[in-house]
Nucleic acid binder design. Structure first.
Lengths: 189, 189
DNA sequence: GTCTATATTTTGATAGAC
DNA sequence: GTCTATCAAAATATAGAC
């Protein structure tokens, strides 16, 4: 494991602040204070506040894209694929607790890479939807509107970053398995 | 139906802008432009940007509190109570599409009423959790960690505001019933 | 790699005329 | 109820010394 560069440290601390107050409300002075240096010194390591946001969001979005690509090409049943997607979100969310907030809520402040981000997200959702449609055809999955199903599951998975850090002792494998139960089998006994 | 006051109009337009960019990124000049007046003129109707945020968030939070109070005091089974909560979220979200964004993502920018908001939210979650615990005891609901169940259902419900406006032809009763199926019975056939 | 000093723009908000 | 004019503070970012 290479030691963290000063740039990576700035991006990591920035993500934490973005999660607390949102990108727009965090000033370069806030970030500098959190790093225990002056605002001007930040610019020796990063080009702009905007660049920090890009780094955070695009890096995570590409992790989801890669993960979905594995799921798409696997030979599993649709229910198995759903479980893989749940595991993917638990994995990426738990290793990017702070960055997930920016991904979910600050993507609209992207400038140069806004369209690239939007494409990654819509491709991801299309893959997800196709898995559900496939599952309905195969009789594995309830014949409910696939969009409502996708929305329901995906919003839960996208919000994991809010929840994981609250439970300090959270066991990720157990969380994954609880979510499999709830999202796939529902809560009724 | 009384006609909308100028103040109410400003708050409504502000909520729409807050949903698009977040509270911090919306300037009083943005809001004025959207109202087709000058920024200074806004202050004839509202005291501050902060006051607008308070109006939006507290009003919706209190609607949820009232709704939960009805559910809590009803004599229904726990599964029935869950369905009532789903209906409550569909109702409040669909009548406050724009404001829901501020409720979910800009509450941390509340100042004077931050603690009041936090209390409403934590009371709401406690009531929700108690319904689930009751349901597990009664054997109605799967014996999975109530916190994971609540998180899963509640994040889906809290994100409805993102989803409802995308489907122009959305039938709210049908949406409610689809969510009942998915959240309660799961997606597996 | 960090600092001080500073340029430039934008921000929320007020005063007072109409 | 809206305007013009304006303020004071805060924002991102740069220049140049150490």
């Amino acid at each position: 494991m290479k030691p963290e560069t000063r740039q990576q440290e700035i991006i990591r601390v920035a993500a934490k602040l973005f999660k607390e107050k949102g990108y727009s409300a965090v000033t370069m002075r806030d970030l500098a204070t959190a790093m225990d240096i002056k605002a001007a010194s930040l610019y020796n390591h990063i080009n702009s506040k905007q660049d920090i946001l890009e780094s955070i969001i695009i890096s995570i979005a590409e992790q989801f894209t890669e993960g979905m690509s594995s799921v798409r090409e696997s030979n599993a049943t649709c229910i198995e694929k759903l479980k893989e997607i749940i595991a993917l979100h638990v994995e990426v969310s738990s290793t990017n607790i702070y960055g997930m907030a920016a991904l979910n809520h600050d993507w609209m402040h992207l400038e140069a890479r806004l369209n690239y981000y939007k494409k990654l997200r819509s491709d991801y959702e299309n893959d997800f939807r196709n898995i559900l449609i496939e599952g309905i055809k195969a009789g594995e999955i309830s014949d409910i509107k696939p969009d409502v199903m996708m929305f329901s599951i995906l919003t839960t998975l996208r919000s994991l970053y809010l929840w994981i850090p609250k439970k300090e002792d959270v066991n990720l494998q157990e969380l994954s398995s609880n979510l499999n139960e709830i999202l796939i089998k529902g809560v009724i006994k």
